[in-house]
């Protein structure tokens, strides 16, 4: 493999100082924790889609009931009972207001306007009820999750911060409470407190904070002893700096992820409670009670179950996708 190369000239054999600085340069500017997490979340298509649907559903839940001329309990059994959904432009998808036998329910009742999601057996507009119900479900889930978060962070933080006997006692209490299935705890509490939004929220908080407390305690304990914290302390960082630059971002990331997984859990449990007759009492609507009403009429009026189930499912999927995305985005091991 001897090279016979005319391009190599004698003058190329002069010593040349080649700068090594080039290879030592750090190629990318340093990016902060939050910005980095956000950049990575944005790259996760599934999480972005999830976020988009969450925002869309939240906006609809706020706006749609306000814009409709019907209230959630405006009944009219005479003129508009059990109208099938009719959405102009989507007739080809079956939203043409005709029932399973092909009869146009709007013609039969002489109704001119369109009910996009149809009406129920009391003639109430399902569109309004679905979005108002979504609002209730979201409020329940949000307050319950924030409640979980506050109690869990306080409990877990105190347990980890004081350590020793305090930690020991607090952990034994958690161990016993964790032995009670959520299902049992929630049902007993609602039986005691009675149905309604407040008792559902309370029941969800009472059964939900343990997970958060465990995660916060674990994180704080782990971080307290980690080498980078020690390294930072050795380098002369103040406690303030360690708390704000190291502990908070790491723990907060975990808290946000847990919160994001708690919300769909709470939405599910609210729906579940309606199914077993412990949900929001009529005439108010939640996604759960609408689903339950829909399922009761499933064989005769399948459309009544369709929209609540669809919105509930999309909401749950979106929250799970976003939570998965956040978990990956906050995981520093994923940093490239």
């Amino acid at each position: 493999m001897s090279v016979v190369n005319d391009n190599i000239t004698l003058d190329m054999f002069q010593p040349a100082q080649i700068s090594a600085d080039e290879s030592d340069r750090i190629s990318a500017p340093s990016i902060g924790f939050w910005k980095d997490a956000w950049l990575r979340l944005r790259k996760n298509k599934a999480a972005v889609v999830g976020l988009f649907f969450i925002v869309l559903i939240v906006i609809m839940a706020i706006v749609a009931p306000m814009l409709s001329k019907y209230g959630i309990d405006d009944q009219d059994v005479v003129n508009r009972q059990n109208l099938y959904p009719r959405i102009p432009g989507l007739e080809w998808l079956g939203f043409d207001g005709k029932d399973s036998t092909g009869m146009d329910t709007y013609e039969l009742n002489g109704v001119k306007q369109n009910f996009w999601f149809g009406t129920d057996e009391l003639g109430r507009d399902i569109w309004v009820r679905v979005w108002a119900g979504t609002r209730i479900s979201l409020i329940i889930a949000l307050i319950a999750s924030i409640g979980d978060c506050l109690i869990g962070v306080a409990y877990g933080g105190i347990s980890a911060y004081y350590g020793g006997l305090v930690d020991n006692v607090m952990q034994r209490v958690i161990e016993i409470l964790a032995g009670i299935p959520n299902l049992v705890l929630i049902i007993l509490f609602i039986l005691w407190l009675g149905g309604g939004m407040t008792s559902i929220i309370l029941a969800l908080i009472i059964s939900g904070w343990i997970g958060m407390a465990r995660i916060v305690r674990g994180q704080v304990l782990k971080l307290k002893n980690q080498e980078f914290v020690l390294a930072s302390r050795t380098l002369g960082s103040s406690d303030q700096r360690i708390i704000w630059k190291h502990l908070i971002p790491n723990v907060l990331g975990q808290i946000i992820i847990t919160l994001m997984f708690t919300i769909p859990g709470a939405i599910f449990f609210e729906a579940f409670l309606s199914f077993i007759g412990l949900g929001i009492p009529a005439p108010a609507a939640s996604l759960g009670s609408l689903n339950q009403a829909g399922f009761e009429n499933l064989q005769i009026y399948p459309y009544m179950a369709l929209f609540p189930a669809l919105i509930l499912s999309i909401l749950m999927i979106s929250f799970n996708l976003l939570a998965d995305g956040l978990r990956d985005a906050f995981d520093p091991r994923m940093r490239k």
Partner: peptide
């Protein structure tokens, strides 16, 4: 090794030497 070599010459950055 040219970039770190104390004896690097111009030819080193242009051509891989033979054995």
């Amino acid at each position: 090794f040219a970039a770190r070599c104390p004896h690097a010459m111009k030819v080193c950055t242009e051509f891989m030497p033979d054995y």
